[in-house]
Amino acid sequence: MGRITLDKVSKRFGDVEVIPPLDLTIEDGEFTVFVGPSGCGKSTLLRLIAGLEDTTSGQIRIDSQDATHVPPAKRGLAMVFQSYALYPHMSVRKNIAFPMKMAGVSEDEQKRRIEAAANALNLTDYLDRRPGQLSGGQRQRVAIGRAIVREPSAFLFDEPLSNLDAALRVGMRLEISELHERLKTTMIYVTHDQVEAMTMADKIVVLQAGVIEQVGSPLELYHEPRNKFVAGFIGSPKMNFIEGAEAGKHGAHTIGIRPEHIAVSADEGPWSGVVSVSEHLGSDTFFHVHDTGLAETITVRADGEVGFRHGDRIRLTPRAELIHKFDENGLRIA
């Protein structure tokens, strides 16, 4: 079991309120991602749940038990750190065994669980090596192994992939998702990368300056962002925002349209502009369009075969039903 409830939890560091009082419930077995720009308080929130920081006020409940003042070790949670935080002086086997040794698990049971974890994570050949002799991805797997053997009620991940190179990151992302499918344990995952959030989460919590901007499934956030911040943060390339007369036509202060929801052509469409940069990715082409009279730049995502170049004048057609409307406070107009 692993249902985690935050009830009016807040955190101050001296005079700075990092997290104003906040409510959040994470259901048992859910894969929840905290996402937001750096400094938004997502890591602090995770550390409050872990018990590595004290809450200033409010209550944290794990499976309905008040855990606010329970020390980290007694909360039944396991954490994977950004730097992996492996014990450099212990072999992989000893690293994985450490939490069980602390908990007084019997030798036989330790052995059984280490083997199971090593099998699941492809670490069997490396059990007697030191962390220093492993690659980044292997270290990451050891850190996960150390978390698994505790059989925690929830896993906490603090930006676990940010130290890996791009290719490995995609692979590890899949492995963690698979792990969740298999274990069905609650996982809370902190990242600043919205792609990780979108691909892995059951539920995304978007944070900014310690405040929850929106909670929802990836597609809810994509289709119905509650405000301009979420709209701009979720999706890549970023949503285009247009103010002024064009927005007024839709009865809004600002309208937003995603790059993939704009069609391009040489001579047809209500908006026009000049291509300043075109990025050819093969599968897609991104056009950065200037001189539209709407916004500084309009980014458009087109098919890989579309061949406009720098300086070409093109015309753009937004898909009307996918235009997002926001009022002057940046809130969504339904």
Binding site: P72, A73, K74
Partner: peptide, 18 residues
Amino acid sequence: IPGEILEAARMDGATLKE
């Protein structure tokens, strides 16, 4: 020494002495 490693030990159930 990175503080995260000591925090990891704390999460792993080590007492201060351990």
